[in-house]
Design a protein around this nucleic acid. Structure first.
Lengths: 216, 216
DNA sequence: TGTACATCAGTGAACGCGCGTTCACTGATGTAC
DNA sequence: TGTACATCAGTGAACGCGCGTTCACTGATGTAC
């Protein structure tokens, strides 16, 4: 008697092929960007006919949605692993973020870059975004906060809904937000290749920004 | 006797149609992004047949190249106008940059966002990039620089080629670079819509970052 | 255990579309004498 | 001034391509008795 439920051979096969499709999709995105993603091309790479993929995904948009979700998840996982290894620590998170972004710049852009035209991200990615911000704020909590009043703090205090009820004081919220925007400032320009002609080392710039964040 | 040289009626007509093509191209980019740009669609919008555009541009890539160049130029012009109005002033440059970026986010992304797959920017854009950085450094020179030695300064000093011989001391180079990366950090996330769900005001965050840059 | 049936992965043909690009051409505009 | 010629903008047909997606189908795998 064959086992019922999630472990069915057919279901395992399905999951396996789905995974293989996504893997080929990522290779395609890595080399040519998300807008070049083509179902037929993936099918050809796998030795299948085009329509075969419709057994596994409702269409191109459905596949992209799944990839966006996976990208968010893989970043969250990378940050979670960093936290588990070093405890809540902004430097560890920063390095995990940079490594993740540069390992596959187009995956990074799929999440934080130019929005894919005509495509809107699935709702559940905001949950993952929230989890990411929570990890950052947890790490920011471990640093001593400046007592001096910040002009921006008032704004953060009155709109603290974005922190999803995190108990961080305004100065910590501010630091977490700057962690986010400043590191993305360096990373997005680096990943887009805007430092290559300049002859300076983006890694050191990133490190300098991180140090500044930790010391402020 | 018709006038010779650059003012010929035919040449003026040519330039006019070229401009009209580019304008339609920008409208298309503004709504659907650069990867959706189509020569045939532009021709249709103009009431022309597709091949007609080949009188004006060698092909799609040639048109995109021209658009990238124009985008760089329009940013440089915006910053130049700001400098002419306020003198060398980082705050004025920052506001001009933000206004330019948000006026047409996809134009901003064409320059600073995800690289267009398979396309490489023309060489002369680096000249415009240099001019932009020069304006920033000129403005950064007017601020008092901190005397404290920075760890990152040594790296900037030994690779000051990126500043194209600008006489700014390392601390100013550093400030100019941070101006660039931090404001892009906020702007790129804002233009990509990553703050919309959070309920906080990107303009105030931008302003807070600018203040921090001016005060550091 | 074998047999009848249901499920489902994958195929091949087809549809309609839009793309970039070429080519031979027409017809209007400018040029030279 | 008019006439012969050259230039050049724009057309329409065509090529070859790849795309997403649908549909009726075959054949293998699993299920029920």
């Amino acid at each position: 008697m064959p086992e019922s439920g999630a472990g069915t051979p057919r279901e395992r096969y399905r999951a396996q092929v789905r995974e293989e499709i996504k893997q080929h999709a990522w290779e395609q995105i890595a080399t040519a960007g998300a807008s070049a993603l083509s179902l037929n091309a993936i099918a050809k790479q796998m030795g299948l006919s085009g329509p075969a993929l419709y057994r596994y995904f409702a269409g191109r948009d459905d596949l992209i949605t799944e990839l966006v979700r996976d990208a968010y998840r893989s970043l969250a996982d990378a940050l979670r692993r960093a936290t588990e290894a070093s405890g809540p620590d902004l430097a560890a998170l920063a390095h995990a973020l940079r490594e993740w972004a540069l390992a596959d710049p187009n995956r990074y852009f799929l999440v934080y870059g130019t929005p894919v035209p005509g495509y809107h991200a699935p709702d559940d990615t905001v949950l993952i975004s929230d989890a990411i911000m929570r990890m950052i704020l947890d790490a920011a909590m471990t640093l001593p906060s400046p007592g001096e009043p910040e002009p921006f703090a008032a704004h953060l205090e009155e709109r603290r809904q974005w922190a999803q009820g995190h108990p961080a004081p305004p100065a910590v919220l501010h630091r977490g937000l700057l962690f986010w925007t400043r590191l993305h400032g360096v990373l997005s320009l680096e990943a887009a290749g805007h430092f290559t002609g300049m002859g300076l080392d983006p890694a050191r710039l990133f490190e300098a920004e991180l140090d500044d964040l930790l010391r402020r």
